[in-house]
């Protein structure tokens, strides 16, 4: 069979996928770009052209800057913690102990729990008057009075990150564990014979095998964390005092609660650009580390 025929056939087979993606994602994206230069309302007026006004207004607003900072903090901390705990638990589950298969099976539980259910569950746990966390900590004696976990800017963000980490670190665990199991036993045995300590063994024997898959997990989780909406919407709606308001919540407010589709679109595109730049720089990083580790 000839090359051009294969290529044409391949395009034909891809047509349904590409068609749907262009119709439901490509076209709205172009439309959003158009909207972002107008002062359109959500319903009714289609608005007039206002140039870069929306962008200028959004970028210079303190609301945006604060929200960007909040989002970055949430993304960086939650992803970092998830990666560390994920790798540690994968190392643990790679050991031989009784019940390790049951424990591995359990790891899927938080990951399978719907995000909204997870958020609801933790909101109940953190309840300031009747929550399980306050009850447990006072009964153990760690705190002497009930706290308002989701009511203080300091603890609200941490509480959110814990809830998010609990749900998402098992994903890292499962990916790392699968990669660990691919490490040939004789290489490890050889390192042991050579007298390499546990840290050296991890760095030079284990890490090269798992760094590739981990990088993919890192990229996926970071993108997810930057787009975060569900868990915050259910747990705090951005409060207290907007200390947990992330970019997606801000866009929702602007475009839907205040019905300013135009400036909402410009804000959404700024977020898109940020995520794209982030993902692209990660991709470069992935290629580099994957190359050097092997």
């Amino acid at each position: 069979m000839s090359g051009p025929f294969m290529t044409t056939r391949a395009w034909l087979l891809m047509l349904p996928l590409l068609g749907v993606m262009i119709a439901v994602i490509g076209w709205p994206l172009v439309d959003t770009i158009g909207l972002s230069f107008t002062n359109a309302k959500l319903v009714g007026t289609s608005g007039t052209f206002v140039g870069f006004d929306n962008y200028a207004k959004m970028l210079s607003s303190t609301n945006f800057q604060r929200t960007l900072y909040t989002t970055a903090w949430f993304a960086i901390v939650s992803v970092a913690v998830e990666m560390v705990i994920g790798v540690l638990t994968a190392l643990l589950l790679n050991q031989e102990f009784h019940g390790r298969f049951v424990l591995r099976a359990l790891m899927i539980l938080p990951w399978a729990l719907p995000t909204v259910v997870n958020a609801t569950l933790w909101r109940l746990i953190y309840n300031p008057e009747y929550g399980a966390l306050n009850a447990a900590l006072t009964q153990i004696g760690i705190i002497d009075s009930y706290r308002s976990w989701l009511g203080e800017p300091g603890t609200a963000m941490t509480a959110l990150i814990i809830a998010d980490t609990w749900k998402n670190f098992p994903l890292v665990t499962l990916i790392a564990l699968a990669a660990l199991q691919a490490v040939p036993r004789d290489i490890r045995a050889a390192a042991l014979v050579d007298g390499a300590g546990p840290l050296a063994r991890f760095r030079y024997v284990t890490l090269p095998f798992i760094v590739g898959p981990l990088m993919v997990a890192l990229v996926l989780r970071t993108i997810e964390a930057f787009k975060v909406f569900d868990i915050i919407w259910v747990m705090t709606r951005g409060g207290p005092a907007n200390s947990t308001r992330t970019l997606s919540i801000l866009v929702y407010q602007e475009a839907f609660s205040f019905q300013r589709a135009g400036s909402g679109a410009s804000l959404a595109l700024i977020v898109t650009l940020l995520v794209t730049v982030l993902a692209a720089s990660y991709a470069v990083l992935v290629r580099k580390t994957a190359g050097s580790a092997r």
Partner: peptide, 25 residues
């Protein structure tokens, strides 16, 4: 036909788009 693979990469790249960027249209 790996030569058409770049289009799949484009499709996968849409994962980066936050839903809020598409929601209004």
């Amino acid at each position: 036909t790996p030569s058409v693979g770049w289009s799949l990469s484009m499709v996968i790249a849409t994962y980066m788009l936050p839903p809020v960027a598409l929601a209004v249209p």
